[in-house]
């Protein structure tokens, strides 16, 4: 759009000479080609969503290479990107214990370490005391998915709550 606006202004200013008009058209065409290349090249698509190819492993793109990556990392740090929880799966295993899996995504560019603590609740909402309810570490690589799972310590558990904190 910006290129279009710019090219319109260029055309208005150069309406006298045919030669100048030809040059302007060529420049507009080149700019459009570059924009198309950037847009198409910057869009990395994974062949299989189940496989996450980290930026440092897959082929570089115009938007993600040795030059643009530090800029991206700085911007990510500036806006405070971090951990996001994308999905929570619960169920009951064969022995009748509640099972839980938490899936997330680390939006930052660096490894994020944090700790989580699960408290299991019975049908009255009371916390079930357990030695397994302790702070456990999780490490999530930058721009990557992660998950952690847990099983309730008692068949009485019907719900849970999770607390998180920055890893010490």
């Amino acid at each position: 759009m910006l290129a279009g606006l710019w090219s319109y202004k260029v055309l208005r200013a150069c309406n006298d000479s045919k030669l100048q008009e030809t040059q302007v058209m060529k420049t507009i065409l080149n700019v459009l080609l570059i924009i198309t290349a950037v847009v198409l090249s910057g869009c990395y698509e994974s062949h299989d969503e189940r496989i996450n190819l980290n930026e440092e492993i897959r082929s570089d793109t115009l938007m993600s290479n040795i030059l643009t990556r530090p800029v991206g990392a700085a911007f990510s740090a500036l806006i405070g990107q971090g951990i996001e929880i994308t999905h929570v799966v619960t169920g009951t295993n064969k022995a009748g214990f509640m099972v839980l899996q938490v899936d997330g995504y680390n939006r930052s560019t660096g490894v994020r370490r944090f700790e989580y603590k699960i408290e299991w609740l019975d049908d009255r909402g009371m916390v079930i005391d357990s030695a397994a309810s302790t702070w456990l570490p999780v490490s999530a690589k930058g721009k990557s998915r992660f998950s952690f799972s847990s099983v309730a310590p008692s068949r009485d558990a019907v719900d849970f709550k999770i607390n998180t904190r920055k890893a010490g």
Partner: peptide, 19 residues
């Protein structure tokens, strides 16, 4: 010790072998 115990307990119960 808390962390080791927690991970062991989780593994034991999740395995289903104690059923």
């Amino acid at each position: 010790f808390n962390r080791a115990a927690s991970e062991m307990i989780q593994s034991m119960i999740q395995s289903g072998k104690l059923n």
